[in-house]
Simulated assay, not measured.
Amino acid sequence: MEINLDIRPNRRFEIIDVSALLCDQVGDALHPFRKAVYCSFHTTAGYLEQGVCRHLGHSRKQLDPFIRAVQKIFPHDAGYFHDRMQLRDELSDSQKEKEPVNADSHLTFIGAGLKNCVTYLHRPDEPVYFIELDGIYKDYVRERRTTVMAYDRAEIVHRGRIAIPVEGDHAIDSFNLKDARYGLFEQLEEWSRQYGVDKGCIDIRLAPEEEHVGMTVNEYETLLMRNDLPEVLSDPLRYVLKRSKKLLQHPAAIPGKTRDYAAYDLIHFYNDLMDQVPVGRSVIDRIFSVLSTPAKRILRLKRRISLLVSDSAETGPGHIVHGTYQSPILVQHHPAEDGVRYMDITLRRFT
């Protein structure tokens, strides 16, 4: 069963219960199904995995401060390259007037571990939260869309491995896997048709031997991916000091004490957050542990991403469901030894 929901946010940051919207639209039609995939078409609004929400008690009262903690690491309008419209040559003058200042929302999406596509065990009594990070800009209210696909069984119909060349001179680099040069989307579309998958999903997982690399689905805008993201990955604490004056109260005028001041304030911020989000300790520990050293773990980038497959005309051309600006992105913070990264692909058909 496939349902498409249109969502109109009321605020820039909003936590929206999609299960309540589904109930309003289709009643209890989803109740008989064992699982459901929730797919966002957007790069600044998405979902947390069910396990993370469970750690946070499926509660807005605990989810809200968790997301706000990550937002404090990436404050709004803090001089990001992505937000410097004079550098955005791909935009016309009229587009620059309307383009939102939202690099913080993209980085929060990645840093908090939000995903474009998640699979939940279907529990009608539990909320499913669509997390909106950039719903309103000036007087413009975004129109959001999410697809929900409910099913009982998923049959693996194909497994394969794909090599992605990642040659480059930068220690930290990112690669747009939707780029036609890699042939990834063309291959995935071909497999979905070859194996007769009209409703299903594609899991893309980094090969077990791959190190110093992660993935996300977001907008591959050059300034964001080649300037803002590498800056935070190279030294998260230094980045927080530079960008987030609200989070770090002490001045960073003495270079030798900069990191000590940052650690001091992060401890206070961490303890304050723990008072509000007690059951989410393991989740928040992972966020803050990354800030203590250069990013040996890339914030909450994943080793696996998922793409929904549908033959519905409502989800757009092609079988792979994705929004206009969504791209699978591979981010490495150390070059691959042979200049190639390997990904294992699993194609599933829903019944």
Rank of each mutant, 00 (worst) to 15 (best):
M343S: 09
H42A: 07
E143P: 04
L241M: 05
S327P: 13
L114W: 00
P255S: 04
R161I: 13
L308Q: 14
D338Q: 12
T324Q: 14
E314T: 13
P75H: 01
N10H: 09
R181F: 01
L107K: 03
R300K: 09
D125F: 01
V101E: 08
F66L: 06
D265H: 05
C53P: 14
V279F: 01
K61T: 12
G214V: 09
D83Q: 03
L308V: 09
E211Y: 03
S174Q: 08
D17P: 14
Y140L: 06
I345S: 10
Q326M: 12
H58Y: 14
V240D: 03
Y325C: 11
S192K: 01
A69W: 00
V197L: 06
R304I: 11
Q249H: 08
E14K: 00
R12K: 11
D24I: 02
T147G: 05
D64Q: 06
R8I: 10
V166H: 05
L56A: 11
R281W: 01
A207E: 09
P278H: 01
R159A: 04
I162L: 13
R286V: 09
R286G: 11
K115D: 08
C23A: 11
G316V: 04
W191L: 15
F175Q: 11
V213L: 09
R341H: 12
Y325H: 12
H319Q: 13
H212C: 14
I287T: 07
E337S: 15
L241Q: 05
R300M: 15
S94Y: 01
R12G: 11
I156F: 00
F109A: 05
Y270M: 06
G135M: 00
I7F: 01
L206P: 02
S40P: 02
K72R: 06
H250N: 10
F109E: 06
R193K: 03
K246E: 12
N102P: 09
Y140V: 12
H158D: 08
N176A: 14
M149R: 07
F175A: 11
Y120F: 10
D228G: 09
I202C: 08
K199T: 12
D17R: 00
M215K: 07
I254C: 08
S306H: 07
I162N: 02
G113N: 01
R341K: 14
G196S: 06
H42S: 15
Y137I: 03
Y129A: 02
H250A: 13
L22R: 08
E219V: 12
R11N: 12
K296S: 14
R54K: 10
R145D: 13
I298R: 12
R88S: 14
Y270L: 06
C53Q: 11
A154P: 03
F66W: 08
K245Q: 07
R145T: 14
S174N: 02
A150K: 04
F269Q: 05
E167G: 15
R88C: 15
R281I: 11
R60T: 11
I16A: 07
L22M: 14
P100N: 04
Q95Y: 00
L87S: 13
V118C: 14
D125W: 01
L91V: 13
V290C: 13
E167N: 13
H212P: 12
D285P: 03
I202S: 05
M343L: 15
A336E: 13
D83G: 06
V309A: 13
V232E: 02
P9W: 00
R286W: 00
I164P: 07
F109K: 04
C53F: 01
E2I: 10
V217K: 08
V279Q: 09
H319E: 13
A336W: 05
Q194F: 00
A252M: 01
P165D: 09
P9G: 06
